[in-house]
């Protein structure tokens, strides 16, 4: 990758697209192309020592995971540049709408299709040894008919059933937490899509692990 700008500097007219929990997502250009800059600004509530190492580690790992995920057949933005000292990743701009903002207005069939694809992508990541770590509906952009996965900031390489189940648990938590109305249909479709890619045996194993994690939760009663 070539460096066209000094570390952390955003070329083009920068526009804050989104202030996330750990990074600002800024629109700009890179080599004349429309681009997104993901800038991990220092979080001042954290000790600088702790904060720097977390930002550095997450920047490197995220770039790696975005790349590996695409190789595993899951659409992700193309990487343009990784600036480790500036904890900034420059990547392809994905035009579209976050799945989170569409769920409420989607018809049942469209929702079923989208969540089936969501589940299938999760299974593809898992079988490639990747755990996304932040599988929420806010981190999926619907572009045309396809789902593009973003925000690999908490992703890591793992093949443990436990980590894969935690991944699915977050989707479940998000669906029941943020989209209570659509959660049953969405979850069923999601699991269906997952199972189709992973195979039934593997899917059952992840489900068992998921239930075991839920039972470990405080005051949980799991049917």
């Amino acid at each position: 990758m070539t460096t066209s700008t000094s570390p952390g500097e955003i070329s083009g007219k920068p526009g804050l697209l989104f202030r996330g929990a750990e990074a600002d997502i800024v629109a700009g250009t890179w080599q004349g192309m429309q681009a997104v800059y993901k800038v991990r600004k220092p979080l001042t509530y954290r000790l600088p020592l702790l904060d720097e190492s977390i930002r550095r580690q997450r920047t490197i790992r995220e770039a790696e995971m975005i790349h590996l995920s695409r190789r595993a057949g899951v659409p992700t933005p193309y990487l343009y540049e990784v600036d480790v000292p500036g904890s900034t990743i420059v990547m392809e701009y994905i035009g579209g709408t976050r799945l989170r903002d569409m769920v409420g207005s989607m018809g049942d069939d469209a929702a079923r299709g989208a969540f089936r694809e969501f589940g299938a992508a999760a299974a593809r990541l898992h079988s490639a040894g990747i755990v996304h770590g932040d599988l929420t509906t806010a981190n999926v952009i619907v572009r045309g008919g396809a789902l593009v996965f973003i925000d690999f900031g908490l992703s890591f390489r793992a093949t443990r059933l436990e980590d894969q189940a935690v991944d699915l648990r977050l989707i479940k938590e998000t669906l029941t937490g943020a989209h209570p109305g659509a959660s049953r249909l969405a979850l069923d479709a999601l699991f269906e899509g997952y199972s189709k890619v992973s195979g039934t045996a593997k899917f059952r194993a992840v489900q068992r692990q998921l239930r075991s994690i839920e039972r470990r939760g405080r005051y949980a009663r799991v049917a």
Partner: peptide
């Protein structure tokens, strides 16, 4: 709704 919690 619980959006996050301790796992242990």
């Amino acid at each position: 709704r619980i959006l996050g919690e301790s796992l242990d």
